[in-house]
Design a protein around this nucleic acid. Structure first.
Lengths: 210, 210
DNA sequence: AAAAATCTGTTGCTAATGCAACAAAAATAT
DNA sequence: ATATTTTTGTTGCATTAGCAACAGATTTTT
């Protein structure tokens, strides 16, 4: 928590301390960036929420990533990918820092104090991003919707230290996050309720087992 | 490539330059580490191949991660997770560097030259890990086996700069990586061949479209 | 306060996928 | 060189999950 504050303070100081970084604001609905072939952009979301959207060759839209405060994203973190169009869309008003990857590790001057701090903070930031990604993979590798839901609830329950917790996402977004059909997920939710595994009142979920 | 060499040289020097890191060797089949509640371990695989294995409450075994040279892994990169047992198994003989996360960012002394370099190299290492993870998520979020396979082939084709390339994994491992049933994947492969999308001779795949 | 957009909840149908089981081929160990 | 283990390939069957479509509730916009 304290750590999170530290990082926020640091991130908000970046653009005034380093001329290689630029800050931009976006309104809800605007496109923050597209992932093209140049593969050199790295971004930090200072404020707001944004989705990484994929349109595949069939024209299907999928939300493949969801970003909030202190999330990092950008082309450099993605595999070169020919057949998809990827772009980041502001879900709410956003503030974003942009870097060019090539410049990232070039020091302004030897022992530049900013870059030293930057390098350390960056490590923590990316590490927590890795935890997020591994969490998602943990869920995506479950073979059926029931296990995906139960594992997801389990993680939330752990995080909020209670068998009773509230969903941080809309059910529509949750279906995207777990990469399953929304209606199929709703059906499975109903079954879990019928069978007495969980209780659900709006966004409040209670685990009834163990 | 050159960059990779740099990193390897650096990584191999770690244990002689920092007393907080320890190097261990493992034989094929040995358990490198288990992910417990302590949540403080970070590891770098210097040499060899290892799998991150999950046994869930039903006793199902899944390979949820595959590591090779210069991969980083360990509890700190994983969500706290009660119901699963996770451990890393050596697929071949392995050399591994172990850190305790708490110690990671504590400098030996102010301006310790090792930790400066470490911090920078670590950034690159984790970033490439993030690319790997995003690649996997990109694949896992495809709704059907066909799209998973075609996207995977696409990425390989891009990487090896040719419509003709060879699979770096056994088909069994590939099914695990894509998190699908092996026999269902084999069936889909057959269909892709029948329908003339791809050609397959052992591990050599040729894309016949576009 | 009304209109528009988004989210929730449900259902029928169908295709896709997981599971079990087995045999042949290939790779590894003895 | 032979035995053992792992990988590949295939099939039938049952279940799951995707898709399409719709209505009511809720939220956001005007």
């Amino acid at each position: 928590m304290e750590n999170n504050l530290d990082i926020s303070v640091f991130l908000n100081s970046i653009d005034s301390r380093c001329h290689k970084a630029t800050k931009h604001s976006f309104n809800k609905g605007e496109t923050i960036t597209t992932y093209l072939e140049k593969r050199n952009q790295l971004c930090i979301l200072l404020k707001g929420e944004a989705d990484l959207i994929r349109y595949d060759f069939n024209g299907n839209k999928t939300i493949i990533g969801q970003f909030s405060d202190n999330s990092i994203f950008g082309e450099v973190l993605y595999p070169a990918n020919t057949n998809n169009e990827l772009f980041v869309l502001a879900k709410t008003n956003c503030e974003v820092i942009f870097f060019t990857y090539d410049n990232l590790w070039l020091k302004c001057r030897p022992n530049c104090s900013f870059h030293k701090e930057f390098s350390e903070q960056m490590n923590k930031l990316i590490m927590s991003q890795v935890v997020e990604l591994n969490t998602r993979i943990e869920l995506l590798t479950k073979k059926n919707i029931r296990d995906k839901l139960l594992s997801y609830f389990d993680i939330l329950s752990n995080k909020q230290l209670s068998k009773r917790f509230s969903l941080p996402l809309s059910l529509t977004d949750l279906a995207d996050y777990l990469s399953v059909d929304r209606s199929a997920m709703m059906r499975e939710l109903s079954h879990l309720i019928e069978e007495g595994f969980i209780d659900k009142k709006g966004k409040k979920i209670t685990l009834l087992y163990e």
